[in-house]
Design a protein around this nucleic acid. Sequence first.
DNA 1: ATCTATTGATAAGGATTCCTTATGGCACTA
DNA 2: TAGTGCCATAAGGAATCCTTATCAATAGAT
Lengths: 307, 307
Amino acid sequence: MALPEFKIAQLRHFVWVAELKGFHTAAEKACRTQPAISLSIRDLENKLSTVLFEKRNAKTSNTELTPFGQYFLPKAKELIAHHDNVAQDMALMSEHKTGHLRLASVPSIACRMLPELLSKFIADVPELHISFYDDNSEAVLRKVEKQQVDIGIASLPHEHEHADITFTPIWEDQLGVVCREDHPFAEVTELHWKELRKQRLIRNGTSRLLEDTEAEPLLSDSQFLISNMLSLIAMLEEGLGITTLPWFAFPKNNSKLRFIPLTTPKIVRHIGIVQLRNKSLSPAAEALASFILKNTNQDKTKDVESE
Amino acid sequence: MALPEFKIAQLRHFVWVAELKGFHTAAEKACRTQPAISLSIRDLENKLSTVLFEKRNAKTSNTELTPFGQYFLPKAKELIAHHDNVAQDMALMSEHKTGHLRLASVPSIACRMLPELLSKFIADVPELHISFYDDNSEAVLRKVEKQQVDIGIASLPHEHEHADITFTPIWEDQLGVVCREDHPFAEVTELHWKELRKQRLIRNGTSRLLEDTEAEPLLSDSQFLISNMLSLIAMLEEGLGITTLPWFAFPKNNSKLRFIPLTTPKIVRHIGIVQLRNKSLSPAAEALASFILKNTNQDKTKDVESE
DNA sequence: ATCTATTGATAAGGATTCCTTATGGCACTA
DNA sequence: TAGTGCCATAAGGAATCCTTATCAATAGAT
């Protein structure tokens, strides 16, 4: 005979009848009528081709298990417990309350936007584990492609258009000039690239944003390249020169430095969420993506213009 | 939301689709049509409120799991395995191929009938564990009452009628006289109790069967009481005297001794299966009981008369 | 490019299962 | 001997499952 296939509800009914010693109380607990429980138990007995409960001709009016039923009871309970564990686990998982979320982001967003976003996001999901990596855009994209990360935050260079990657733009990050507060530029509100030619310009990791723009000549003018951001800031504070930075990379609350938008050319990099095309996100990643989307839509451009 | 309740078949479908990488092959394996599998999976996805399989716009035409599905797969497999373990175990149990059977019997049946019966019974149930006890009828009954034993083989004294015990008679065991082959009785085919009065009668554990019969005076005539059966036989072989024994207690294949039925009074003890009333037997015990019944019905009386 | 074969999704109907209300039978109680 | 509490049974409706038939999309072949 083929192995029977138990239904979880059926097993629950059995356990309840056994433990509450009665069909009526079990029916109550199961939110069913008593005949439903009767049929359920009978079906189970047929599957096992054995009787589970003694016939009630005993003096005690309680329904009692047969030896076979006693043998079955603990196993049924274990099976139910196992099922419920899995069900609960999967429910938590699909409500992204648990699981593992791997995230990579470019440093500027990581410093400026993510701290607040992530702390809000994880506020009500204490069981969710998050692995975070920060790196430049290409590295972030690479991690996404290699599935080392579930979701990435980066800008999308043109050479990546071909890849199996979906890009959802979120932030617009405008390039500007950074100088010390006592620099003549500190007082102006916008700058033309040609105004920079007389200045001592320090290149940095973000300088290649100037490539393919009319301001490209600045790159060859430049004498310095400082790729480490902390060193760069220190040099700028020292008055060694000026540099160009995207707004998000400009350190927040820095009192010694000023950020002046570059208006000609206006260079904007679009930063957004990067994920593998044709691959669904885990519920947690999905939740984070929509959370970011929801919590940034309204101030997408304001962030750039304000302050 | 209440926890979802998975169906085992549904989980199987999921695992098959995942492992065979396709709905059609899974449907084949499940002996269902492809739409059935589609619906089954969709139902599961609704329960989990998540998608399990990537949409098939990928270049590879194989259906692939989502990360969530990958996380679910091993758990689903474990749950199915657990279920099947229990189902298999219970199936074996209900076919009495496994489990534990505790049996007590009076020694005569234990020696004369059970060896053959049990060896036949266990021939095709190698996983069944049997615990066997032999003792006199009262002790057997006590073990049954105390549920130290699932089933007993004994005769039912009158003082036990009241108890919660069911008795199914199987064998009729006739009392007879045992003497050495060179004794004058050895040649006769039946005896009257009065013929024993001139003999040296040895009492034994079974002698109380004579109580409440017209042959009761024999008990007070008797000079010896030997309760150990082996010693008793040795004494008889030595020609020390004669005794009364039920036929089943008379050692099989003993060439020195003879058994002569006592015809007046004809004393018969009924031996049968003893079990607790209102308590079902385990499948193994049930099987043994009906096995014994089936394999002894036809020669119930023949055993007593023959040889 | 068109055709074909294969894949999964969808719709509609029938079959099955599940659960309900109503009722029956049995044992214990008063 | 009627009453009460328990489970079993019967019959009908509701929900579920599974089928056939069809669609839509893709990949490979001609």
